[in-house]
Design a protein around this nucleic acid. Structure first.
Lengths: 204, 204
DNA sequence: GTCTATACAGGGATAGAC
DNA sequence: GTCTATCCCTGTATAGAC
């Protein structure tokens, strides 16, 4: 196994010894194992039956913890976001984008999951993923714009650029570069994002 | 129907009256209708059976013209690329990126198909899509870098930037913005790409 | 060459037993 | 909480009609 997506024993509100201990741990086990199966067999190979097999339960048992396959896969991404934000003290700024890129090249399975789920979310019938990414982008653009504003003010510089638009651009570049990298591992994502950073005002 | 993806009667080598006329037209009909079904029911709803139903043939008939569902969907994208390149005299430069963005906001179904197929291509088991996008990105980066070089030389300016990296960045931004736009139609893709254009050297 | 009919393995979702 | 059984849908492959 790759490792626990998020440590349940320290962050879970119900504790690991309460009446729901087994259920909570089982839920965590499903999230962890799902990421393993994705890395081994790809998203399309990550059927509920395949995950269940990896754990030793039937596929129907999984639906007791997650409303649907889609919801389960989204939860894997959500758990990852949480651990990144906690461990790296991520505030959503431009610098964090580079660091995230550096970390992500070491977990291609996760980047693949992110890419596939994001594409899945753009179509009706995938409302769970859609809600997740809508909120994720809205928050990401907001915090990124705030970071740009703060850096600009600190340097005493001014700009006529729409910082929300710049934020959307940086996030878009990051997502787009990940896809190109998945298809051609020679591409250097962190270097290219740093290049974009250099082009931005107040980041000489 | 949305319209013919590419006019077969003028570009097809075998002609529309030859011995294979019916097959050629049928193949074209499948490509056209597939785009309609995608627009109406989403990619996941675009099963071979759904396409066949829209045409009035069995789903098995489709496999006579296309090796697989994946190959069929890729051919829709390839046909669209061809018509864009012919009609707009697209040379793959930065300016074409803005124009393509302006055209694409009018065909969200196509943007959706592109996004979903691109994400599909990053995983093993989808070699047809993978080959298509690998080549598409390689060519796109090359022509875009050449365009940047030409503009730079024409303006007499110089830069220490890696132009292939800049090209990858512009393409990545375009792809990433399309996804954000699909989730939030308020986002202005052409304006944001123009913003990036402004940041680039030799494009004041 | 074009197409229908059919069979197969596998998918997500769900109902109800235990 | 977990199971089995079942439903309907999918892409693919093949046999054979015309």
């Amino acid at each position: 196994m790759i490792g626990r997506v998020v440590d349940v024993s320290s962050s879970d509100g119900t504790g690991t010894r309460g009446p729901y201990a087994k259920g909570v741990q089982r839920r965590q086990e499903i999230l962890d194992r799902t990421l393993d199966v994705v890395a081994e067999r790809g998203i399309d190979g990550t059927s509920l039956r395949a995950i269940g097999e990896a754990i030793g339960v039937s596929h129907a048992a999984l639906t007791h913890y997650f409303e649907s396959r889609e919801a389960l896969l989204v939860e894997v991404l959500r758990a990852r976001d949480q651990v990144v934000q906690q461990e790296f003290d991520d505030d959503g700024g431009v610098a964090d984008m580079v660091r995230a890129a550096e970390a992500n090249v070491r977990v291609p399975g996760l980047v693949t999951l992110y890419t596939r789920m994001l594409a899945m979310s753009v179509e009706p019938g995938n409302e769970v993923a859609q809600a997740f990414f809508r909120e994720r982008f809205a928050e990401g653009r907001k915090s990124m714009a705030a970071d740009l504003r703060a850096r600009l003010d600190a340097s005493g510089a001014t700009t006529d650029l729409d910082l929300e638009q710049v934020a959307a651009l940086v996030i878009a570049a990051s997502d787009g570069l990940q896809v190109q990298w998945l298809l051609d591992r020679d591409l250097d994502i962190p270097a290219t994002i740093r290049l974009l950073e250099r082009l931005l005002p107040a980041t000489p």
